[in-house]
């Protein structure tokens, strides 16, 4: 029995992986349209809307919070990498990530708050553990903010930033001895 078509728009359909479009229907095999993978990305809604998080709005406050949290964590990572040279290479990607996220957030926060200078533990193992703890805290904070802000586009960006921090945590060595070049 043929299935009733579900109420999905063309846009909805395009967001499904292009290579899953081929459906072997009950009526026989058929090839689906060959969509470019770039078509599948919801690009028109994905860019942050600085106005949605503009000055004076609640989202502007949340953007400032996200930027401050990212800045504080970035400064810690930078100080740890400077103090413990053996950690500078594995922490380089984290530094680049925080910089990219900060740049985006600064579009909504013209006057960011200065980052708080961290205390770096003397031992590299403790320093790395502190980085892990603070990165986890940042990941949670960005996720919480994604669930809180009004703007959907801003929420999407924050959720992506949270996921990116999570990825870095997955590849960050747990033992500084294994991080030395």
């Amino acid at each position: 029995m043929p299935r009733a078509p579900h109420p999905l728009s063309r846009r909805t359909t395009l967001a499904v992986p292009a290579w899953t479009v081929l459906a072997l229907t009950a009526a026989g095999c058929r090839w689906g349209p060959e969509e470019d993978a770039s078509d599948a990305a919801p690009t028109s809604t994905a860019t942050p809307d600085p106005q949605a998080a503009g000055e004076g709005s609640d989202d502007a406050t949340y953007a400032a919070e996200a930027l401050a949290a990212t800045g504080d964590t970035a400064l810690l990572v930078s100080e740890v990498a400077t103090t413990h040279r053996g950690l500078s290479t594995p922490l380089a990607e984290l530094t680049a990530l925080h910089l990219a996220h900060s740049r985006l957030l600064q579009e909504a926060v013209p006057t960011p708050k200065a980052a708080t200078a961290p205390r770096v533990p003397r031992g590299s193992r403790q320093a790395l553990a502190l980085v892990r703890t603070e990165e986890r805290r940042l990941q949670r904070r960005l996720g919480d903010l994604a669930d809180t802000v009004e703007s959907g586009t801003f929420a999407r960006a924050l959720a992506s930033m949270s996921a990116a921090v999570g990825q870095q945590l997955s590849v960050l060595p747990s033992d500084p001895g294994r991080a030395d070049p």
Partner: peptide, 14 residues
């Protein structure tokens, strides 16, 4: 590999 904006790749080009 880790990404800068997982799920929102176009943000990396801004």
């Amino acid at each position: 590999s880790p990404e800068t904006f997982p799920g929102a790749e176009e943000l990396a080009d801004r």
